[in-house]
């Protein structure tokens, strides 16, 4: 009898597994074909396979890349842009969510206003930043008009600057609401019960945040941070519009190599794309492991 029952259970769970995979199949095929195909094609071309005018498979493109004096400054700048944007977006996004949760009057309209820029494309955002923060932009004219600066051009250089301030401002502007709505959703799902319980047990505001709210938020916010990092590490249109000529971030460098007149530079562009992909994959794996640990801790 019990053997029969356990057989039945095993069959159910197997059916479940099959059904789950069947449901996942369309998404997996899409990712497999589009992402996998692109990575495969980029990797093979970075090795000179199937590229026009290539003498044959070799690691030359990677060797040239590592020997290129712009490569390491570019890695450093790209990492700086991605890490700084992610940290600022998470801090401001979570902070805004914590504040928004406490607002009672007009919370709905405030939340809508907070999410206002989510559907705006990054390129449009970048152009807006250009018009706002450029040395001939709106703010520089305003400060000159108010007499704070002698001329619009005396406004500090926030665009095309070596620290990529303009690029980071654009990413943060765009990602804060994204982090915010995720954090807000987690906080709403968790409710106030745990914090109320902690408060009745005499926990201070800081203790409630540190030992109750933060562990609840951490897994979801970590995943969001990974998405923000991967995005800001791998996109090229914003730094292309707002970044300095030198050094350029890795994706811009890849685009420059790819559109170079000399076809011999195309394998290098592909090698750069592979390097960016590998770095992002490593960060995603590490981040996912951290998020799993955070879930276990929060559950414990």
């Amino acid at each position: 009898m019990s053997a029969l029952l356990s057989d039945q259970v095993r069959r159910w769970s197997r059916d479940d597994t099959v059904r789950t995979w069947a449901r996942l199949a369309p998404a997996l095929v899409l990712v497999g074909v589009l992402f996998g195909g692109a990575v495969w094609s980029a990797s093979s071309r970075s090795l000179g396979v199937g590229a026009i005018g290539s003498p044959g498979p070799s690691l030359d493109a990677y060797r040239r890349l590592l020997g290129d004096p712009e490569f390491w400054p570019s890695v450093a700048l790209t990492t700086h842009v991605a890490v700084t944007s992610t940290l600022l977006s998470v801090a401001l996004g979570v902070g805004a969510a914590l504040l928004l949760r406490r607002v009672h009057f007009g919370r709905r309209s405030l939340t809508t206003l907070f999410q206002f820029n989510l559907p705006i494309p990054h390129v449009i955002g970048a152009v807006a930043i250009l018009l706002l923060l450029g040395q001939s932009g709106f703010i520089s004219r305003l400060t000159a008009g108010l007499g704070w600066t002698a001329a619009p051009a005396d406004f500090p250089a926030l665009l095309y600057d070596p620290y990529a301030v303009g690029v980071i401002v654009q990413y943060v502007w765009k990602e804060v609401p994204f982090v915010g709505i995720v954090a807000l959703a987690i906080l709403r799902a968790a409710g106030d019960d745990l914090e109320t319980a902690a408060a009745t047990l005499g926990a201070s505001a800081w203790q409630r945040f540190r030992f109750v709210t933060l562990p609840v938020l951490l897994p979801g916010v970590l995943s969001t941070a990974i998405i923000v990092f991967a995005f800001s590490f791998g996109t090229f249109e914003v730094p292309l519009l707002l970044g300095a000529s030198y050094p350029a971030v890795l994706p811009v460098l890849a685009h420059q190599r790819y559109t170079d007149v000399d076809l011999a530079n195309r394998p290098e562009a592909m090698a750069l794309a592979v390097v960016v992909t590998l770095i992002v994959i490593v960060v995603v794996l590490v981040g996912a492991a951290l998020a799993r640990r955070a879930v276990r801790r929060a559950g414990a």
Partner: peptide, 22 residues
């Protein structure tokens, strides 16, 4: 412009700097 630390990406950027009096 900018002490040569950076350069416009393309002619449209230079046109804008010119039109804005930079």
């Amino acid at each position: 412009w900018r002490g040569g630390a950076t350069y416009p990406n393309e002619i449209a950027d230079l046109d804008r700097l010119f039109a804005n009096g930079e």
